[in-house]
């Protein structure tokens, strides 16, 4: 069971307090009607699903109830960082280079 740091509560709590919300930074288009079917399908369904660092959404559902983002390595399952919703996505490639060192 993962141990997850909630940036809103400032504490670590076990995974069962959280719900994973899938890949982060897939913004809903402001004008969905302007997208063609292919673009809309990309938004709805296409995911990077990387073997490596992934920015993903978590919600502290049995805590503060708030969403936040986390960068996690999908092979080791270790968290690299957490940050609040609305903050920009860290440079995953740079983080990966750091992690490799």
């Amino acid at each position: 069971m993962l141990l997850i740091h909630c940036p809103w509560c400032g504490i670590e709590r076990p995974e069962i307090e959280f719900r994973c919300g899938g890949e982060a930074h897939i913004d809903r288009p402001g004008q969905p009607g302007d997208l063609d079917d292919r673009q809309w399908a990309d938004f709805l369904y296409m995911r990077s699903n990387p073997k490596g660092l992934l920015a993903e959404r978590w919600r502290h559902v049995h805590g503060c109830g708030r969403f936040f983002n986390a960068v996690r390595h999908t092979v080791s399952d270790s968290f690299v960082c957490v940050y609040k919703t609305g903050e920009p996505c860290p440079d995953l490639e740079a983080l990966a280079r750091e992690g490799a060192q």
């Binding site: 719900r19 913004d27 919600r59 109830g65 708030r66 969403f67």
Partner: peptide
Amino acid sequence: LAHMEDYLQTE
């Protein structure tokens, strides 16, 4: 509720 919170908080 989770669906609503998701849109409200993240979109």
